[in-house]
Write a protein that binds this DNA or RNA. Structure first.
Lengths: 140, 140
DNA sequence: AACTACTTTATAATTATTCTAAAGTATGTG
DNA sequence: CACATACTTTAGAATAATTATAAAGTAGTT
């Protein structure tokens, strides 16, 4: 295959450095995820539905899961969990936090939250990251 | 039925104020959860396994889920999620935070973390709670 | 003691996710 | 540039956590 090499270079590079061959399906997924201005929050099922809706030839579920996992392992996606037993992914991989409002997720830039005091890691351990979720409710 | 009223009063009271009749199964669950010194972290499946292991007559899965949900809605349990698509519950309902170390959860007392700066809630919203997860990794 | 609404239970259904194995494709080598 | 080979895709089955169902049982009121 291998067309539109230049146009899709950055999306292909993300796949390659995630250890994935840039197949058509994967390039489309990578493009869908990263070819946007704003941060994108999604579950794998949401991603699958929105991409497959427009397509006559559907990409299989397994391919979505495989690709998202590899991109996440390579650090191109951030995973987080809310209380509905589903994994969420975020194309914003910079350290940051989240508002969580009734199923909706909103990014909080890292510098909007700073700590006065943080506990030390138990001995033998060190802190990998600190994640804050601010849950919202309606103003009365 | 209705025996050992006094002995189990506090466990029965939690059920009642969660809107649940104190049936035998529920009283046993309530007791198992709250009759302990230290905070208890669990998933419903773990709870079910450890309680049913010792019993000849098993309590059904649905009863565990129903009871835990009601106790949680009433505020006697705190729910939280990690990245494995399972709900965790915590008998420590005071506002607090967690270390998360390779599947293991450790409580962090609320006063061990304080903020220098927190963002404002979007308009029309207010902050319900702030939850911090500190992920750990091995030292080197 | 009887009635009624709430419970329990086994089992089926659902949802998110992972596995499997057969058919297809990217890529290095000659 | 054709080939071989290892990696991919796919549909469908399998698994895990959870929720729904509906028949049989029980708490609590009268």
């Amino acid at each position: 295959m291998q067309k539109n090499n230049n146009k899709n270079k950055i999306f292909i590079d993300k796949l390659r450095s995630s250890g994935l061959r840039p197949t058509n399906q994967r390039v489309e997924i990578s493009k869908f995820l990263f070819n946007r201005k704003k941060t994108f929050h999604f579950t794998v099922e949401e991603l699958r539905n929105s991409m497959n809706l427009k397509r006559s030839k559907k990409i299989s579920t397994a391919t979505f899961y495989n690709t998202v996992h590899a991109l996440k392992s390579a650090g191109y996606l951030k995973e987080f969990s809310l209380e509905n037993n589903t994994s969420y992914y975020d194309t914003n991989i910079s350290s940051h936090h989240h508002f969580f409002d009734n199923g909706k997720v909103i990014d909080i830039k890292s510098d909007k939250i700073t700590f006065q005091k943080l506990p030390e890691a138990p001995k033998g351990k060190k802190i990998k990251n600190v994640e804050v979720v601010i849950r919202l409710e309606n103003n009365n």
